[in-house]
Design a protein around this nucleic acid. Sequence first.
DNA 1: GAGGAGGGTTGGATTTTCAAACTCACGGAG
DNA 2: CTCCGTGAGTTTGAAAATCCAACCCTCCTC
Lengths: 156, 156
Amino acid sequence: MAANGDPRPCSIADALAVVGEKYSLLVLREVCLGNGRFDQLVRNIGAPRDVLSSRLRRLVDAGILTKRAYSERPQRFEYRPTQAGLELEPVLMTLKEWGDRHIRGGVNLPMMVEHICGHELVPLVTCRSCGKPVHHEDLTAHPQAEGWTVTGPTAA
Amino acid sequence: MAANGDPRPCSIADALAVVGEKYSLLVLREVCLGNGRFDQLVRNIGAPRDVLSSRLRRLVDAGILTKRAYSERPQRFEYRPTQAGLELEPVLMTLKEWGDRHIRGGVNLPMMVEHICGHELVPLVTCRSCGKPVHHEDLTAHPQAEGWTVTGPTAA
DNA sequence: GAGGAGGGTTGGATTTTCAAACTCACGGAG
DNA sequence: CTCCGTGAGTTTGAAAATCCAACCCTCCTC
């Protein structure tokens, strides 16, 4: 058994440490939509300006957003996603789809995203190796750190 | 233009209102791994017990987890994912994959998930209609609520 | 030179978080 | 029977984050 007292080492936790604070993913949503200006973000997200300011700094520091001047004199800025930020968009879309079904109940959806193929985007998470959709019962986790278990030493 | 002052209506925001608080997705991770007992959750997540207690209540209320007694006398409980909870697992896996690449830099990964096909699970988000991988540049957003724009009235 | 707009910062009240200690119910060892 | 340990939380009090409104500064237009 591992020296515990430390939480499980995990990239999900690592990712959430960067983008898991309140509003961070909504900032990314807006920025991916092209609404990267401070006042747009405040309005569209509904976040306090100071918190937003802090999140933007953090996301820029983490390499998920960049801050660009779209005008000198008067100095005006715009936040845009980096490649890393853009690569989070599938996570956002997958979360949206879950929310559409499980919270909105599939009706009265407030936003539609169209794929270039001409249809509404309904994301499907697949296995890159075999191409099949990912289902819980097809997965087996292997924690790499010593002492970490999947079902715990006391599991049923 | 819409009567603004309200944030953008959006299923991503709705979803995050339920699973976006600190530790909530880590609870789901553990529960999906089969570690659904209170003390396991405390240890594996590293969350304060009171916060965890509050998150568990919320996730159960939201229909993402269920609380089951695995023993009467002494009463002992276990949290398990509902169908809605299980359907969030692809989001978790996609986030893990992003973290693997962008935070861990693709090396020294603390956890591996194996797909039933025999290979390591590397999730790929695809369009359900055409099957192609989802990329930012292939997407067009259509907000349904009146007055909401994609690029904003003042966009470049 | 008055009034915006954009992009923030500051101040103070309210909430959350945190860590450790505590509770309660039971089961087993001595 | 008494003491110890386990599981599942609750309580407590200090530290940190959030919220909101107000303010600031620079430029631009009227």
